[in-house]
Simulated assay, not measured.
Amino acid sequence: MSELFVGLMTGTSLDGIDAVIVDLAAEAPKLIASLGAPLSPELRQQLFQLQAPSEDELHLAQIAANSHSRACAEVVLALLKQAGLQTTDIVAIGNHGQTIRHRPELRYTLQIGNHAMLAEYTGITVVGDFRSRDVAAGGQGAPLVPAFHQALFAKPNSNRVVVNIGGIANLSHLAANGDVIGFDSGPGNVLLDAWMLQHNARHYDANGDWAATGTVLPDLLTQMQAEPFFTLPAPKSTGRDLFHLAWLSQHLTGRTDAPADVQATLCELTAWSIATAIKQQGTPDEVYVCGGGVHNAHLMHRLAAYLPRQVQSTQALGVDPDWVEAFAFAWLAQRCILGLTANLPAVTGARGKRVLGAIWPA
């Protein structure tokens, strides 16, 4: 008998809504259907505006949360139609929401999204607010996907690393003995996308083609590598609160570098920071990548140059790299519905295992 859940993810890149339907009845979860939809220019602008303090931001945040939930509902209903399913076929929606602040050192993280409205629009139970309980227990509230990576990708007698390259990059070290270490390594696409938008009015550097035309600036790279976050021990997590255009501008003060060379250097920074984080935990047997960054051919090439092992997409493990994070939030929703813990204290730093999420019944 099937047990169908919907997973929704809108990440730091603010590029769109990823939605999946997964069957979690069997020991091996199965992806049933998937759909991606870009954020409307209006919603994208609303969410960008909330990445920094502004006047009347409480009001703006609620308006954006409502818009976000309407957009999510439209994607869910379109996905159900595509799959030939009814709302009554779905146990629950796992909705990550949109992160607009992540300050675990101040004991809070904020992902907006009107979960009650999403339940009302779809007629499906919604599970959301996955991160706050871990933060309340002294954890980072991120990354949450290593527990899912362990459930889906761990292999006995093999040391695997799964890297998710979204706006921020995070890693899951799945040790052969069953131990899991996971943390954010630093910027994924967030600086690359911001620089691309500023200079080319496009939201991302397709295939890394623009970065590939530039030359890495060694002195700028060294300067950015000195960011203290990179040497912090795990558990650690980050976001747009640290890595944003103002952070980059500080490093570019007084410089007149060609924009393409800066893009090449940002790409190198992402590849270096991921590879350094991997090697800090020893030499893995296998490295798999998921998230939007997997489509940046230049970034993948530079990452592979730093590592002694072949770097592959999670497609090699039978899971499309575009849907891994949305898949994870469907899995997290099931854990919450069943009252099962879903955080890994060794990853987040929480005082113990906790049931994550809150439930808005249909």
Rank of each mutant, 00 (worst) to 15 (best):
E3G: 10
L8T: 01
G11S: 08
T12E: 04
S13C: 04
G16V: 01
V20E: 11
I21Y: 00
D23Q: 04
E27Y: 00
A28I: 14
P29C: 11
A33N: 07
G36Q: 11
L43H: 10
R44M: 08
A52N: 09
L60T: 02
A61I: 07
N66W: 03
H68N: 05
H68P: 00
C72W: 00
V76N: 08
L77S: 06
L79D: 08
G84M: 01
T88D: 14
D89E: 06
V91F: 05
G94V: 03
G97Q: 02
G97A: 05
Q98S: 10
R101Q: 08
R101E: 02
Y108A: 02
T109K: 06
T109V: 10
Q111A: 12
Y121M: 15
G128V: 08
D129G: 12
F130W: 10
G138Y: 05
G138T: 10
G139P: 08
Q140N: 10
A142N: 03
P143D: 06
P146G: 11
F148V: 15
H149P: 12
Q150V: 14
A151H: 12
L152Q: 13
K155P: 05
S158D: 07
N164I: 11
G167A: 13
S172Y: 15
A176N: 08
V180P: 02
G182P: 03
F183Q: 09
S185H: 02
G186W: 09
L191V: 09
L192Y: 01
M196T: 15
M196C: 15
G208N: 08
W210Q: 12
W210D: 09
A212C: 06
D219L: 12
L220K: 06
L221V: 13
L221C: 11
Q225C: 15
A226D: 12
A226H: 06
F229V: 11
T231H: 02
P233M: 02
S237P: 13
S237R: 02
S237L: 12
T238A: 11
D241A: 13
F243T: 09
L245T: 11
W247H: 05
S249P: 00
T253F: 07
T256R: 12
A258N: 13
T265R: 08
E268M: 14
A275K: 11
T276I: 01
Q280D: 04
T283S: 12
E286W: 00
Y288N: 01
V294M: 04
H295F: 09
L299C: 04
L299T: 06
L303R: 03
A305L: 03
Y306I: 00
R309D: 00
Q310G: 07
Q312R: 10
D322I: 03
D322A: 15
E325R: 11
F327S: 00
F329Y: 09
L332D: 07
A333W: 01
Q334C: 02
C336P: 07
C336T: 15
L338V: 02
L338A: 12
N343G: 10
L344V: 09
L344Q: 04
A346W: 00
V347P: 07
V347Y: 00
G349L: 03
R351K: 14
G352L: 09
G357V: 08
W360P: 07
